[in-house]
Design a protein around this nucleic acid. Structure first.
Lengths: 352, 352
DNA sequence: CCGATCTATGACTACGTATGCACATCACAT
DNA sequence: ATGTGATGTGCATACGTAGTCATAGATCGG
């Protein structure tokens, strides 16, 4: 009887969870070289002669070998994966996610999604367990502890359209206050004095800044928005409808509604049409963001153009830059300019 | 002189890319136990006395230790990460992504995004390099080689709303043909005989099935759609507008337009209003999917309800189930029922 | 009081890849 | 023939965690 010495060397077990996966050792055996050589050949490390490289490449293709990213990341200490932390409930989310994904993909990075949903966050461990090289935060409410946690675990990150006052990092955000101020000035110019505000969640810098920019201009003219004409909900079309009813049910009505985003404005617009309130003859409605829907012939909403896509790409690039230069270089804060887009939902206030 | 035996043990280098990360060895040193014990204590493996567990837990918290997912996945042969392969340009994408993400998160899985964009796919290596445990395919055009590649590399996957005839896997899809047939029957009932079709990309099973379901009913009534009243573009609002012009510029005009999705229908609707064509008095327009926008007061589109969210959740669950039971159990094909939603954009054809 | 059982723990190794270092081989100049 | 440098290749190990196995100490029965 001959002893069986380790069964020819292949003890590759088909693990419970994983599929039977081909490793560089398998390729090495087939090509008649060492695992080291396989690693070098397939990465085009100089010093491997063409003949060897070809032999290894052919063996790899024959076996359908793909280098295991886990082993690779473990030794490289880098995953080439970025976490996109966002609120999927926010109607703006596709406009954030797509450009971020594309910008990251262009640099060879993958996008791992971390979503906040109805206030519930994902298991955040994934941000600290070396699953990602860095994170883009587009959902930080002002009281979030997330920036602290990221700092504590040395995970690089940047802010996109939201800010935390407490942990400084690179940031890209729209000029929310400036855009709102433009709206306020325009509305004052055409004669409005009675304004309603349909705002988003109070703990978002977006909503806060859009409100602040608007009311600051009013204050310069010694005007203010009475509390009963202010509704705070979230950024959806349904919220816009509800907020519309809330504000317009007051005994006195405003002559112009400024909405913290286009979806709320569309909700208000839809509700106005249902109720037979003519826009802009009876009521002016202005949105924010200039989503594609705002330009539709049936909507034609006066709003503020917010270059979300540009900001998203800039944030992705800022993060990748930060990963290259390390934490010591000074932080950069980019503010994307916003621009008033005059369409068909604004006009002079009705005469009494 | 005393020899320095490995410098106290800590040779933790701050790697170029990664941050200085705390490992279970660091925790072990601080707690005065072995790395093995740390691993066991923090995972609540039975057999570790409470006193030891507490000591380890305190040490871990003091250091801010989070187990490295890479090391973990390497030995577990599982990442608890799923690839969502989709077309981010598709306006339906948020309705797919959000439920999938949430369903996966509920089971402790992360979502890694793989996007097709203007025909360009991501680097697909990520699907084969053990970065994910499985994939959800919602973007397979009928001629895609992706299912083959996934099969070849033993990556489990399911189909969502798209099908490949060639590699069988679990699938969840809407009853596209049935919904379209309902539309056809309803339109015939109210008197239409001249139909235009605004379709999506030819290589998607979605568009193909919606067309087939519609024309099959017409064929039963010995009717057909003439080629000049068929426009094939993609699924966006802008495409709907353009396709509208294309079809309606023919010398003879159809009395009803069936659009392969709501966004195209909205585009057509917008274009009709611009041109002063009254809907539904002059022209009937019907969409598909019943997106939220279809219910807005300003749109009020007759369409087919497509339970996209339900399908997405079902697909996610099907994949997780497949991961549990392995490849041998028979494949399951779920067809989600669709339902005609009658609103305000359909009516009898105009009298000549 | 001693062997047997149990409890708690640690040394060692595997997972798959990348890399420092050593070594074998060969060409070439001396 | 011998040293020298260049060239290819492989061994051993590290990355961080989990599981196998061995063992020291505690507990217990007789």
């Amino acid at each position: 009887m001959v002893e069986l010495p380790a069964e020819g060397g292949t003890t590759r077990s088909r693990g419970v969870a994983g599929a039977p996966s081909v490793t560089s050792h398998d390729v090495a055996r087939l090509a008649g070289v060492s695992q080291t050589t396989v690693s070098r050949a397939l990465r085009n490390v100089p010093g491997v002669p063409a003949a060897t490289r070809d032999r290894v490449t052919r063996a790899a293709e024959a076996l359908g070998y793909v280098p295991n990213q886990l082993g690779r990341s473990l030794v490289n200490r880098a995953t080439r994966r970025i976490a996109m932390v966002m609120d999927l409930g926010n109607p703006l989310s596709p406009s954030l996610l797509t450009p971020v994904h594309d910008a990251l993909a262009a640099s060879g990075y993958q996008t791992l999604l971390f979503a906040e949903h109805r206030g519930r966050m994902d298991a955040l461990e994934g941000l600290f367990d070396r699953s990602v090289d860095g994170a883009i935060l587009s959902t930080v409410t002002l009281d979030s502890r997330l920036p602290y946690e990221l700092e504590r675990h040395h995970t690089p990150f940047v802010y996109l359209n939201r800010l935390s006052d407490l942990v400084e990092r690179d940031s890209v955000s729209a000029d929310d206050a400036g855009g709102s101020a433009q709206v306020a000035r325009m509305l004052l110019d055409v004669g409005h004095r009675d304004f309603g505000l349909l705002l988003g969640p109070e703990m978002t810098s977006t909503s806060r800044d859009r409100e602040a920019g608007f009311t600051a201009v009013l204050a310069q003219h010694h005007l203010a928005v009475p509390p009963e004409w202010i509704a705070r909900t979230d950024f959806t079309e349904a919220s816009g409808r509800a907020a519309f009813d809330e504000v317009m049910s007051a005994p006195q009505r405003p002559t112009a509604l400024f909405c913290a985003n286009d979806w709320m404005a569309v909700g208000a617009l839809n509700r106005a049409r249902e109720l037979g309130i003519r826009v802009p003859e009876d009521l002016t409605i202005v949105g924010f963001d200039d989503l594609p829907v705002a330009g539709w012939a049936t909507i034609n909403l006066t709003t503020v153009a917010n270059p979300v896509e540009d900001s998203s790409v800039a944030a992705a690039k800022a993060l990748l830059h930060r990963l290259e230069v390390g934490p010591d270089e000074a932080y950069v804060h980019v503010v994307s300019p916003t621009r008033l887009v005059l369409r068909a939902t604004h006009g002079a206030p009705p005469r009494r």
